[in-house]
């Protein structure tokens, strides 16, 4: 449903790492960002989040996934070994803390705290859309 709202051009969707489950989770975030360097951010995201393949939370698993996605494995490996995107992840974490995030998943709609359910989130999106239209109309 959120994808449809995004597809309509009404909203964009941003995923931000908020690490609360420790090193394995942080590594998955790091690997995802390194995959993002080669255009495979969402492939890694889906693999980690939706399919719950815990084995890919390891270095070997991430490299295996990179091979499967036909990435430049040497470049990917260098990226994760050097933790090249650690700063980016840290910034997301800090932004989340600044936004008042204290658990995951946590949503924000135009910076305002979002609901816990999909329906609540969509209602907020509609309300924000109406407010935008009012502003443009007025």
């Amino acid at each position: 449903m959120i994808e449809e709202v995004v597809r309509s051009g009404l909203a964009r969707y941003e995923y931000r790492h908020f690490i609360i489950f420790g090193a394995a989770s942080a590594f998955a975030a790091l690997a995802t960002e390194c995959a993002g360097d080669q255009g495979a951010w969402w492939e890694f995201h889906d693999e980690y989040l939706l399919q719950g393949m815990a084995r890919t939370f390891t270095r070997a698993g991430a490299i295996e996934l990179a091979q499967r996605e036909e990435l430049d494995v040497a470049r990917f490996t260098q990226c994760i070994d050097n933790e090249e995107h650690a700063e980016r992840i840290l910034q997301m974490q800090q932004q989340g803390i600044a936004d008042g995030v204290n658990g995951t998943p946590s949503f924000r709609i135009n910076g305002q705290p979002g609901g816990r359910t999909l329906e609540a989130i969509l209602n907020q999106v509609r309300a924000a859309a109406d407010a935008t239209e009012d502003q443009e109309g007025g």
């Binding site: 959120i2 597809r7 964009r12 969707y13 931000r16 690490i19 394995a24 995201h45 997301m92 935008t132």
Partner: peptide
């Protein structure tokens, strides 16, 4: 959908849905 790393959709869209999440 158009994506730029962790951002999906029109960068100029009036509404921003942000999800903070953890893979585990």
């Amino acid at each position: 959908l158009i994506a730029n790393r962790h951002v999906v959709g029109d960068p100029d869209a009036p509404i921003v849905i942000t999800e903070y999440s953890d893979f585990l």
